[in-house]
Design a binder for these strands. Structure first.
Length: 336
RNA sequence: GCCGAGGUAACCAAGGUGGUCACGGUGCCUGUCUGAAAAACAGGUAAUGUCAGUUCGACUCUGACCCUCGGCA
């Protein structure tokens, strides 16, 4: 059986620490499932919890064709935390628009690579869509963005977009709910997908990443909101004190446009000159609270997750026992 | 003590000839989501300082009181 361990949950619950511990215990490596930590130079504010002196180790360069990364803007590889490789962090520059489809492809390749090398792949992260893209079959996610089309559609109002979608593909429109119909991005994406299928249906890659041979274990870390908020607040304060301002300055000095998608990471755009430390921290914390809530609405739908409350004293031991049984226990059974 | 300004949800805050009053933002809660997802979007929550008066009707007008802020003493 092909084992893949998934550790998910909202921010500030200790996913990375748990992942590293389990990796040490069971001979695993981490596949980051974090949409912001893929960007180089965005470290303090995104909470990239990697050994500071660990260099990026480029790997799998020979697999370029498989990776579908001919654009050479993406480097596949890992950095270390406590000696454990953490894959898919620092793989692109902040001015690159990374996305879920690319993530799915890369994470899948890394997963295969680790499996071939008898490592336990451990996907760790809080980006629901990325985890879903890796662990479920989402063929449409591989239809690439059509930037010229997006640019054109960007000028249209929601009403116009809605009308356009209705006339292009009424079924698609009817499947969308009220929230999505009012969401310009979703409308644009829907139109983009419809056109891609219309133009080139044969080349839509529907190959599934996972098969019935895959044995997945989902571990979720959670806490009640009020407790979670306190943990988040503490983290935000630490990030502020650990050089968030310097990181902003450095990125500004590199002349990155703060309108880039990468800068939607919480904590960057609130950093206007007028803000005092207090107002910045307050805004930043609230953004993180809301984010954690949104993460939970995503994860609540994933029924495969086995949840552990981090205020429960024994949760780490329980997880370790569960993973051990799943990973080594079944392996023994296979041999008999 | 006197003078001035003011008290609208957990916080900030708009209003209006007296007519089911109650804009908006933040928070908080819930949800949507198959290549921007830490994005984008949807729904919800909750208020007129206290007491009296005028009036068919007061958040709005009058008075007293309480409280806050500023100035004078």
């Amino acid at each position: 059986m092909n084992k893949l361990l998934v550790i998910c949950g909202p921010t500030a619950t200790g996913k990375t620490a748990l992942g590293i511990n389990l990796a040490k215990k069971f001979g695993g490596e981490i596949i980051s499932a974090d949409s912001r930590q893929v960007y180089k130079g965005m470290d303090v504010i995104t909470g990239k919890d990697i050994d500071k002196d660990s260099e990026f180790i480029r790997q799998l360069a020979d697999q370029k064709s498989k990776f579908n990364i001919e654009n050479n803007k993406i480097s596949v590889g890992y950095r270390l935390k406590e000696g454990i490789p953490v894959w898919l962090v620092d793989i692109v520059e902040p001015d690159y628009s990374f996305n879920a489809g690319e993530y799915a492809s890369l994470a899948h390749q890394v997963n295969e690579y680790l499996r071939r090398n008898n490592k336990l792949p451990i996907a760790v992260g809080g980006t629901g869509l990325y985890i879903k893209a890796l662990t479920s079959s989402l063929p449409l996610i591989r239809i690439p963005p059509n930037f010229p089309l997006r640019k054109k559609l960007d000028k249209m109002s929601r009403e116009e977009l809605g009308t356009l979608l209705k006339t292009t593909d009424l079924k698609k429109w009817e499947k969308m709910n009220q929230s999505d119909r009012l969401n310009p991005r979703r409308l644009i994406r829907a139109i983009e997908v419809v056109q891609a299928i219309k133009n080139d249906a044969d080349n839509i890659n529907t190959k599934q990443y996972l098969s019935e041979k895959d044995d997945l274990l989902f571990i979720g870390l959670r806490a009640e909101n009020d407790i979670l908020y306190r943990l988040i607040d503490k983290r935000v304060e630490e990030r502020y004190d650990n050089g968030a301002a310097q990181e902003i300055q450095k990125l500004k000095d590199t002349n990155y446009d703060f309108n880039l998608p990468s800068f939607t990471a919480l904590g960057y755009r609130i950093w206007d000159e007028k803000g005092s430390k207090q107002t910045i921290l307050k805004k930043w914390k609230y953004l993180e609270h809301a984010y954690a809530r949104r993460q939970m609405t995503w994860f609540k739908k994933e029924k495969r997750i086995i949840w552990f409350d981090i205020t429960n004293k024994n949760y780490l031991a329980e997880i370790e026992a569960m993973v051990g049984k799943w990973y080594t226990g079944k392996q023994d059974a296979d041999q008999n």
